[in-house]
Design a protein around this nucleic acid. Sequence first.
DNA 1: CTGCTTGCAAATAGTTTGCACGTTC
DNA 2: GAACGTGCAAACTATTTGCAAGCAG
Lengths: 146, 146
Amino acid sequence: MQSTDVVESIKRVLRDRGLHATSARVSVLEVLREGHEHRSVEDIRAQILERYPMIDPSTVYRTLETLEEHGLAVRVELGDKRTRWAYMTDAHHHMVCRRCGAVAEMGDAPFQRFADDLTGAYGVRVDMQHLVLHGLCRRCAARSDT
Amino acid sequence: MQSTDVVESIKRVLRDRGLHATSARVSVLEVLREGHEHRSVEDIRAQILERYPMIDPSTVYRTLETLEEHGLAVRVELGDKRTRWAYMTDAHHHMVCRRCGAVAEMGDAPFQRFADDLTGAYGVRVDMQHLVLHGLCRRCAARSDT
DNA sequence: CTGCTTGCAAATAGTTTGCACGTTC
DNA sequence: GAACGTGCAAACTATTTGCAAGCAG
């Protein structure tokens, strides 16, 4: 299990979707797969530059967009102006605390129930992969109860 | 019931919150109150210019931020890059269709149930005023069932 | 009159685009 | 070698900020 194998498996994934396995795409996917937090374009680029020679920001933008179209990456809007990106894995959700800024992760079950409710009531099919909510985190909510 | 009365009532609302009742604030609130769709800063400014002499974009930005802090306006992120604003009224929610772009409004009940679920499960207090979801609208969902 | 607000102009920040060259298949 | 993807530089768009002058209380 060498890092070469990781690269090879990523290339296979890309070619399976009919994409050219370019070094830009490989490096972006490689970095995305290493953690499941959501990262900005600049974070991603910085991590790539630590081990690959060079990549232009515009290439990172274009690459992420391509990966998104092919179901390999997800776009997450946390509420500040920069778009975050994550490797497409299991559904999990976030809440950004409006008081302290903490980002909490939450499991999928209540979200699925909610999505089903909405389908029943309105016929819509809600994307429930990486929802972002705002509000008060557990700690700030508890404090404001006093 | 003259338009003067509208202006006077808005001024009262502003002063009640300890804000100076400036013409910028009055005109922004007046325009926001006229419809409950969500409008961009430029939309709002354009509507103001139809009847008031002049207002700078930066003033609209600052005014909306102030109104938000005082609970008179809500910020809504529909997913494109510009922030939309609405008059703060009853809770209602939106779904942006990822296929056709339609924006559907939905009532509050399932959302409240969901918020209570999350409080029970995670202790968080979710803001459920103007949530924006993404997915497939009724029509596009039906079509993709074939 | 005193401080909060505004207009103006300029600066940011994130993102997008056109084009010539390099790479992948 | 044909099509696709990348780097580079420049353009855009929405938004923010500093400052001097204006208006509200």
